[in-house]
Every structure is written in structure tokens, then in C-alpha cells.
Design a protein around this nucleic acid. Structure first.
Lengths: 115, 115
DNA sequence: CAAACTACTTGACAATGCAAAGTAGTTGTG
DNA sequence: CACAACTACTTTGCATTGTCAAGTAGTTTG
């Protein structure tokens, strides 16, 4: 079973949600999401998402030093981003409920028609 | 807000779920899904999904007369399809829970840091 | 034949995630 | 300095999938 398609779009919202909790940077977001259950997430997937969110004006970005390695790009959510996030959560909830409703309706009906 | 990306992959599972409830055909599946909350779903989206499911061996197909219009393609789920559907539901539930967890963690934390 | 409805098909397109590789700063070993 | 390991961000090429727009075709009504 391939999760890839199920992440489409959801990932963007989740990245935005992580940033909304406080200024953070790519590598940290990556580990938060992996810990949160997005096991197979890799840099090549995450960073383009950040670029897109920035282009849309949903997050702001500044360079900052790291105590450990190279400089980091710190991201924070914009007012537009917060609006978008709220709308996203609402929308995602609707889609998920529609899907879960269809996926969970008992399929026993069919079986009982045979008996 | 554009739902398009959120449908990726989910739609396939939902179509399979509808078929699993009993033999049916494209136009009917379309109306079931639209009634179920997938408002913007159109033929050009649904039929390719059916073709894919068939190619994967998850559904079987037979031609049958219609009491109204042209012949219909009736679909029914295969044993493989049922296995796939069960795995899909489990998987979708996991991804959804991970996403909802991240999306719903209170973002009040940030606000309270300001006050 | 024409119009309206049912039903399925197809081609061009855009968005997004993934794999794989690359660029670069920092720290530690020798 | 040379080399490796770790942190951190970037880029290229690709596959999958939903949408738009248009097309094909059977049935009924006039």
C-alpha cells in the first residue's frame, strides 16, 4: 500500500500547522512530522512545500544562526497563513468525514443479500 | 480553497468502497459520491478511477442493459479488491489521525506566550 | 432528422510527493 | 590541511492523480 497519494495537500496544511505553533525551521519541522506519524517524509518532499507556502505568502522567512551547523531558515506564519490554516482544517475535516462515512458504511448488506 | 489535492488517493478507496456494497455502475457511483459529500466530482474524474481499479484487478466488470439509456458497465469488487479496501481503510485512518493530531494541537500556546 | 437525457471515453494540463543527488557550514580526528 | 560525519537547504527528473473540455453513442420524444 502506497501512502503517497494520501499525503497530497494534507502535508501542506500540516506543515503550516507546525509553523503556526511557533517559529521553526525545515529540519525541525521534518522531525516533528516524522514523529507525528508521517514516517516516510524526506527533505526532498518537505522543502518544496516550504517554498510554496512562502510564495503564497502564508509563511514568512528569515535567516538565523544555528548553535550547531549551518544557518537555518526560520519560518513563521503570516496572518494570511492563519486564515488559510483555519479554512484548511475546516475543509479537511469535511472531506475526511465524507470519506470516512463512505468507507465505514457497513458492507454487510451485500453479504446478507446472499444469505 | 481547492479540494483537488485532498481527493488524491482517497477517491480511489471511496469508489472501491461504494462498489463493495454491491454491483453498480459509473453514473450511480457518481451520484452516491456526490450525495456523500464529494460535491465537485465529475465524470472525467470518476471513469479513469474505475479503469485503474480494473487494471489493478480490484474490481471486475460486465456489460449490462439499462432500462433507460445505453448499456452500462457494471462493476463488482474482487477478493483482491476487498483485501485492498481493508488495507486502505486502515491506512487512511492512520494518515488521517496523524494529520488531525497535528492540525488540532492547540495553537493557543503561541498566543498565550504573547499575553 | 433534431433535441434532451443517460452513460461512458479521451487528451491536454496542473499540482504534488518521491527518489536521488548535490551544495555547504561545523565539528572532530589525524 | 585532508577526511568523515552531521546539520541544513536545494535541485532535477519522474509518476500519480484530479480537472477541464470535448467527444462518442444509445434511447426516447416530437
Amino acid at each position: 500500500m502506497d501512502d503517497t497519494q494520501l499525503l497530497k495537500g494534507v502535508l501542506e496544511g500540516c506543515v503550516l500547522a507546525v509553523i503556526s505553533k511557533g517559529e521553526t525551521y525545515g529540519y525541525e519541522i521534518l522531525s516533528v512530522l516524522i514523529d507525528g506519524g508521517f514516517d516516510n517524509l524526506i527533505e526532498g518532499t518537505l522543502y518544496p512545500v516550504l517554498t510554496r507556502l512562502q510564495k503564497k505568502g502564508l509563511i514568512a522567512c528569515r535567516m538565523g544562526k544555528s548553535p550547531l551547523g549551518p544557518s537555518r531558515k526560520y519560518f513563521s506564519i503570516t496572518p494570511e497563513g492563519e486564515q488559510y490554516l483555519a479554512a484548511f482544517v475546516e475543509n479537511y475535516t469535511k472531506v475526511t468525514q465524507a470519506a470516512m462515512h463512505i468507507l465505514s458504511e457497513d458492507r454487510e448488506k451485500k453479504a446478507s443479500e446472499n444469505g
